[in-house]
Structure formats: C-alpha cells, structure tokens
C-alpha cells in the first residue's frame, strides 16, 4: 500500500488514556520506561501532577492487560 504515504499496514496505533493515582517523580519515570519497553508501545506521555497517562500502542503486539500490569506492579491505581 502506501502510495505517497497512506502508509501503515494495520492502522497507526491505538491511543488510550489512563488517570493514575500515586505518581511521584521516580515511579512515573519508571512506568514510562517500562511501558515504552513493551513491543507494541510507540509513545508514552505522563503528567505526573494529575496522573494523566497517554499511551499510543499497537494492540496486536501488546495486550491491554500488559499495559495495566505495569501500573499494578508499581502499586498504582489506573482508571480510564
């Protein structure tokens, strides 16, 4: 496909936004790093002050449950 950039084989990433309680400077950085390291995750943006966490990812490469597991592992509460 992609004649003059209609690009993308399966749609460019799904964007999902969580609101997370319990961020501090350290764990926010750690969450960002861990999320980015997942195979399908292309972009992570975290607002530490209000917990707004935006993730752009490919659901066929990484499951939503893997995303939410990252918050859980750090003892954080994530809501949509």
């Amino acid at each position: 496909m992609c004649s003059t950039c209609g690009c993308s084989t399966h749609g460019q990433g799904t964007q999902i936004q969580f609101f997370v309680t319990g961020y501090d400077a350290d764990n926010a950085k750690a969450v960002e790093k861990q999320l980015l390291g997942l195979p399908g995750v292309l972009h992570v943006h975290i607002h530490t002050h209000d917990g707004e966490t935006t993730i752009n990812y490919n659901p066929s490469k990484t499951r939503l449950s893997e995303l939410t597991a990252v918050f859980e592992q750090k003892g954080l509460q994530a809501a949509i």
Binding site: I16, P59, R63, L64, S65, L67, T68, A69, F71, E72, A78, A79, I80
Partner: peptide
C-alpha cells in the same frame, strides 16, 4: 472502557 464492568480489573483481552 477496558476495565471489566464486573470485577473492575484491567486484565482485559480483546
């Protein structure tokens, strides 16, 4: 909303 409406967990698969 990908949180389980039943048990509120985030471990949902599509």
């Amino acid at each position: 909303n990908f949180f389980c409406p039943h048990c509120k967990s985030g471990h949902m698969d599509i």
